[in-house]
Amino acid sequence: MANTGYDVVVDVDDDGDLGRTDLQDDLEFHNSTFTETTGPGRKPISSPGLPPPVTASSGGGGKRMLWTIDFYAQFFDVDTSAVLTRCWAALFPRANFLDVLEGNPDLYGPFWIATTVVLILFLGGTISDWMSRSKDVPFAYNFKLLSGAAGLIYGYTLFVPVALFAILRYFGSEAANLLECWALYGYANLIWVPVALISWSPIDILNWTFVAIGFGMSTSFLLRNLYPVLSATERQTSKILLIIVVALHFGLALTVKFLFFAHHSPLDPDKATPVDGGGD
């Protein structure tokens, strides 16, 4: 019998007689080795905002709840080779960055890039502050530079993509993906690492040049990858959104310049409040 799951063995004697029909003695039932195969795996259906956060692709197939570590661990599921490839593609773009992500945007690279930028901005701003002081003025670390860098970089990288995603969804763009927006802005921050390393020069025009180069490269990277998503909205809306993206990024570049590499940072308490050099 086909596809019954059992093999039946019947003994027949030489005379062609089936002999006894005692099933317990003459019929042997064997477990079939037939195993049911399933069709090709299907990707779980997810909203365009986030990758599939509900089902686990491996390791038990249980649900990943919002309050569990596994839910957030999937956003950091990327190896070093992939992160380096994405960093290189952000600095020297040859293809659409969304194609480089291959449908697996991560938060690992954006988080560590933002953290590196914060630390280097603090270091570069401290060196710039030290070089602008007179030798007879005692120097002290200004940790307001560190908190200012953290608030600026983390805040910009976290909230601007969220606002952009919300606006795109409001205007009916189905191509908007929050995790991809975070990845784009996170990897776009990579250019500020070399800029911060060389922008503490006492020659102010050089600092302006380096910051302008960083602004130009990161803005072109964002526009190149955001334009297909923004163009999914109405033409007038997409133009306004492009202007907003450029304006916000220009504001970031100016803030970096004036807070960390201007030699007259508003975060420096000694320069914000002039010290009276007179007597008693």
Rank of each mutant, 00 (worst) to 15 (best):
S58T: 13
L226V: 12
D77Y: 02
L184Y: 12
P110L: 03
T273P: 00
A183T: 15
A176E: 03
L178W: 10
I205A: 11
L168R: 00
Y154D: 07
T219V: 07
L158C: 08
L107R: 05
G172Q: 15
L179T: 15
Y227V: 09
Y154P: 03
G60M: 04
L241W: 06
L178K: 05
G172P: 07
G151S: 03
G5E: 05
A140S: 10
R169S: 05
Y227N: 13
W200K: 00
W88F: 11
V10D: 07
P110W: 02
D17G: 09
S46R: 11
G216E: 11
V211A: 06
L164S: 03
V10H: 10
P93N: 09
G251Y: 13
Y156A: 04
L179C: 08
V9Y: 07
V162L: 12
G277H: 14
L84P: 00
P161V: 04
L107N: 01
V117G: 00
P105K: 00
L230T: 11
V9M: 09
L190M: 10
Y141F: 13
P53S: 14
F210Y: 14
F139A: 12
S128N: 14
D25R: 09
S147E: 00
H264P: 00
F171Y: 15
E28N: 10
L146V: 01
F258R: 08
W208H: 10
P274T: 13
P44S: 14
P266N: 04
N177G: 10
D204Q: 13
T219F: 01
F165M: 01
T37N: 11
S199H: 01
G60Y: 08
D268F: 02
R224T: 14
P269I: 01
R224D: 15
G148Y: 01
Y170S: 06
Q74I: 03
G172L: 14
S46V: 14
T68I: 03
G279D: 15
G278Q: 10
P52H: 11
G148T: 00
F143L: 15
I153S: 02
G216C: 09
V78R: 10
G279P: 08
L190E: 05
I191E: 01
P138I: 08
P44D: 14
T85W: 01
G5T: 09
F171N: 06
F29S: 06
D270E: 13
V83T: 09
F76M: 08
S132H: 12
V137Q: 13
G251N: 08
